[in-house]
Amino acid sequence: MIDFLEKMQKGSMTQQRAYRVIKQLDIFTKLSSYTPILCGTLPIGIDIEGSDLDIIMNVQRLDDFERQIHSLYHHHNEFRLKRTVIRGKEIVKANFIYQQLEFELFGQAQPVHQQYAYLHMMIEEALLKKIPYLKENVMTLKKQGYKTEPAFCKILGITGDPYTELIQFGISEGIIKNPYSE
């Protein structure tokens, strides 16, 4: 797996600032037992103003995770903790603001390299490298209010649910291996 957090240390000014803030919070050490991975738009350089920092984790015991997240981060601005079901899997999500950056901590009982956020990021990064004009077009749509995956799908002509179809596209194009066939 690529360590996008370490790559950000030498990236754009926004990436370097985010790297320092993440290190201040010490999230990756405090939550190391959950195999945290930084995902989303910032690590691959397609963030816009207001983009959050998504950190996904493999969490087998959601109750313990909820308590730990609350204990560590409840005192930060706009702290919210939510438990819900996404695509048939129970998840815990926490959001808060620290140093003017919005964080989203996401936990579910699934290896991080099989989670949608990670798969999307890997596919998007590969596509950005392969198709030079894609970044500018995605950024334009994002500034118009599109979420990242729907923006990629619109540009690439992918129809259906952008979150599942982008993964199917990545598999069919050989960008990623089917993570669920292992």
Rank of each mutant, 00 (worst) to 15 (best):
M1I: 02
I2E: 10
D3N: 06
L5C: 01
K7M: 07
Q9P: 10
K10G: 01
G11M: 07
G11W: 03
S12Y: 07
Q16H: 02
Q16W: 00
Q16S: 00
R17K: 15
A18C: 13
Y19C: 05
I22M: 12
I22G: 03
K23S: 06
K23C: 01
K23P: 12
L25H: 06
D26N: 14
D26R: 11
F28S: 02
F28L: 13
T29H: 00
S32R: 11
S32W: 04
S33I: 10
P36R: 14
P36K: 07
I37F: 11
I37Q: 09
I37T: 02
G45K: 15
G45H: 06
I46M: 04
G50P: 04
L53N: 02
I56H: 09
I56R: 06
M57N: 07
V59A: 14
V59K: 15
V59M: 13
R61E: 15
D64K: 09
R67N: 04
I69Q: 14
I69S: 12
H70V: 00
S71W: 12
L72P: 01
Y73Q: 04
H76W: 08
N77F: 11
E78K: 03
F79E: 05
R80H: 12
L81Y: 10
K82L: 10
T84F: 01
V85M: 15
K89M: 13
I91S: 08
I91N: 15
V92W: 03
K93Q: 14
A94H: 14
N95Q: 14
I97A: 01
Q99N: 14
Q99I: 05
E104K: 06
F106G: 07
F106I: 02
G107C: 10
Q108L: 12
Q110D: 04
P111Y: 11
V112H: 02
H113C: 03
Q114T: 07
Y116D: 03
L119C: 07
L119D: 13
M122Q: 12
M122H: 06
I123W: 00
A126P: 02
A126F: 00
A126V: 07
L128P: 11
K130V: 07
K130Q: 11
P132I: 09
Y133I: 05
Y133M: 11
L134A: 13
L134V: 03
N137Q: 15
M139A: 06
K147H: 11
T148D: 03
E149C: 08
P150C: 05
A151K: 02
F152N: 05
K154S: 14
T159M: 13
T159E: 14
D161L: 05
P162C: 05
Y163C: 01
Y163F: 14
T164H: 13
I167S: 05
Q168L: 09
G170C: 07
G170L: 08
I171C: 04
E173P: 09
I175V: 08
I176R: 10
K177G: 10
N178R: 07
P179W: 06
Y180E: 12
Y180K: 12
E182N: 12
